[in-house]
Amino acid sequence: MKRDRLLSLAPFVGLALVILLIPLPLTVKPVTHVVTMTADQFAFDPPVLRVNYGDRVRLTLQATDVVHGFYLDGYGIETRVEPGISQQIEFVADQIGKYRFRCSVSCGTLHPFMIGELVVNPNLTFARAVGLTAVILAGTLFYLRRFPPREPREHTTA
């Protein structure tokens, strides 16, 4: 009886293992992204860069009002951009995940909030996490439907 219950979950456990362990291909053909990014008080435009693993990013940074900086977490790239002197940055997105870039020059009152992000896809960890959550959810629903919990006995005080 108990064994039946556990066995009924076997397909879900199998699926979860597949999601966790399957080596997904990373090889989307790398391309070069040429982006002109402006930095003004207190935002980057575009605020989010989405690229694929292995892509080359050629970034031209322009400050439009005061001096700004650009620091990319994870990649350790830093530069200082003065209005009128644009800066070129080039790097290969060789680390998967989401990385923040932030202004690295104290540029005014809201400077700490001048943040953007670089998303390097495919974010496998994230995809696996989503898949795993879905499987666990499906498994739970299936289990509860198949083996409904017993109704709690009513306590009568008569």
């Binding site: 402006t38 400050a63 439009t64 009002d65 209005p83 009128g84 002197i85």
Partner: peptide
């Protein structure tokens, strides 16, 4: 920067 009158401050 290219002398085209379109500097960042002109925007």
């Amino acid at each position: 920067e290219a002398g085209d009158g379109q500097g960042v401050a002109a925007r």
